[in-house]
Nucleic acid binder design. Structure first.
Lengths: 163, 163
DNA sequence: GGATTATTGTACGGCGTCGTACAATATGTG
DNA sequence: CACATATTGTACGACGCCGTACAATAATCC
């Protein structure tokens, strides 16, 4: 009877629990860490990112925001709705394209954006602890490479709408 | 000379557009890639991970599954519900603790588990392309270190239930 | 023993995101 | 110019996961 040893539950992870799932877990923690630090501002990571983006780059169409934040256009709509309701961003019509809204920061939003930036810098500094600069760069490089491979794999599985 | 070169595009991205958000984006792609490859089996990454886990380690309580898959107990319940409805796993009562269900693989499920493993190996091989062994190890190391920092930051922000 | 405290799985409501379909508008083609 | 095609933002339903509260059971403490 193969008695399952309850003692060595350190390495009993499933096969996909290698780099990929370490990565997934880390991503979850990143979100969690940012969210908890942003909680006093009553913002989550997505909202904070949006505010930070428009605070830095000015009025931006929602589609561009969606691309930059990595979520869908529909989702961006509701995020903007909330932030607008709180008076942190505003929608301006685009004089050159009447379909689009240009999302811009308000004066109240700019203040929030500053606090977001402060939170971000503090947390980022904490996360760097014990990790050298070139290690961070190496990490970024490998992940970028991994992204290429991932995109490749995704494309080869699902032949998407051929343009 | 620690004088950083000015007008350099080192800082041209918003603060959260650094390693952390590369990481988030990569994690999204990982999920997407696995999901698309698992689509023929009509499974998502979470379901596949659960199947793989019980196929390898045998009957497991739901709480342990939740811990290992990194999602909550409530969520595990519904995942098991679905897989059970499809006859891929089954719930057995634990003779030693009448609160728990032991989730185990069925014979039908074992077959699925094999196909899951095949998918996993293929995809994993693709993802390794152009990334050396020591690079992968470095990646894993840095991410582990990052996880420590993250956990630390999360703990210091939210003092948990002080008994 | 009985009473407290902890743990397991479930029910429920909520949140964030996705995918699809749609109207309004823009862009390209003949 | 008319027409087809692409793009923008929104509405809507769905999914996956979370957090909380709960009953059932276990473990612990007088």
């Amino acid at each position: 009877m193969p008695q399952p040893s309850l003692t060595n539950h350190e390495l009993d992870s499933p096969p996909w629990s290698r780099v990929e799932s370490t990565l997934m877990a880390t991503a979850r923690l990143v979100r969690e860490a940012f969210d908890s630090r942003l909680a006093p501002l009553d913002l989550n990571l997505t909202q904070a990112s949006l505010i930070g983006y428009v605070a830095e780059f000015g009025a931006t169409s929602q589609t561009r925001l969606a691309d930059h934040l990595g979520i869908g256009r529909a989702a961006i709509g509701t995020v903007v709705d909330h932030l607008q309701a709180r008076g942190l961003v505003e929608r301006q019509p685009d004089v050159e394209d009447r379909r689009v809204w240009l999302v811009d920061i308000t004066t109240a939003g700019r203040e929030t954006a500053d606090r977001v930036r402060a939170v971000d810098e503090v947390l980022r500094a904490e996360l760097r602890r014990g990790i050298g600069r070139e290690e961070r760069q190496a990490l970024a490089w490998v992940m970028t490479r991994l992204q290429q491979n991932l995109r490749n794999s995704i494309d080869t599985t699902r032949p998407p709408t051929p343009r």
